[in-house]
Simulated assay, not measured.
Amino acid sequence: MDLSTFRKEYSTKGLHREDLSRDPIEVFEQWFKQASELGIHEPNAMTLATVSPDGLPSQRTVLLKAFNHDGFTFFTNYSSRKGIQIDNNPSVSVLFPWLTLERQIIIQGIVTKVTKEESLEYFRSRPRDSQIGAWVSDQSTVINSRGILEQNLTEISRKYEGKDVPLPPHWGGYRIKPKTIEFWQGAAARIHDRFIYTVQSSGDWLMQRLSP
């Protein structure tokens, strides 16, 4: 299959420095709101990249559940491959690929676990089926068949029938404290606009334009 003809010309007017706040969290909030209002499917879906102890990168899609000046928060199984890799190397990168809007956002930063209280608060807000599901799977491990998962689901559902589902000890939130945030806007002739914010020792953000 020849992919050389798969090509799209970007049609937006580009992105200018004066369009952007000095605070990248404000820019992210503005872009996220626009993506939501324009009907982007799951705009909070982000590709998370982690690295194994031997330097092999790994990626998967997770859902952003909160963001503010403290960082970007998602929830997952701490015993999963991503969790193990984060324990070994807390440096990560996430990508929001809003291609319909001809936009991307790339965040690089350091991950820490949120408090148990924060994890519990979010866990209680999840649908009951999702709460039970957090107990069912030993994420990223090899299994012989789906039947194992279905059996576990039945057993866990019976165990907590008529009861509150407790927070699993292996499940909770991570918060990414950004070091850099890059905003990418497609433009004509592949002369795309890229602005990167880098946090300084003072806590202020340095904004610079990057060559496409």
Rank of each mutant, 00 (worst) to 15 (best):
D2C: 07
D2A: 12
Y10C: 10
Y10I: 09
S11L: 13
H16R: 12
H16S: 10
E18G: 12
L20A: 08
E26F: 07
E29K: 15
Q34K: 14
A35V: 15
S36P: 00
S36T: 01
I40E: 07
M46N: 09
L48I: 04
V51M: 12
P53S: 10
D54Q: 10
L56V: 01
P57W: 04
S58R: 14
S58D: 15
R60M: 10
N68M: 11
F72P: 14
T73R: 11
T73P: 06
P90Y: 09
S91P: 07
L95I: 01
L95Y: 01
W98K: 06
L99P: 05
L99E: 14
L99T: 12
L99F: 13
R103H: 13
Q104K: 05
Q104N: 06
I105M: 12
I106P: 05
V111K: 11
E118I: 04
R126E: 02
Q131N: 02
G133V: 11
A134V: 03
W135M: 10
V136W: 04
D138A: 10
Q139A: 08
S140D: 03
I143S: 04
N152G: 11
N152D: 13
N152V: 13
L153T: 01
R158E: 15
E161L: 06
V165F: 04
P166A: 06
H170R: 11
G172Y: 04
G173V: 01
Y174A: 14
I176N: 10
I181F: 01
W184Y: 09
A187V: 04
I191R: 07
S201C: 05
S202G: 10
W205D: 00
L210G: 03
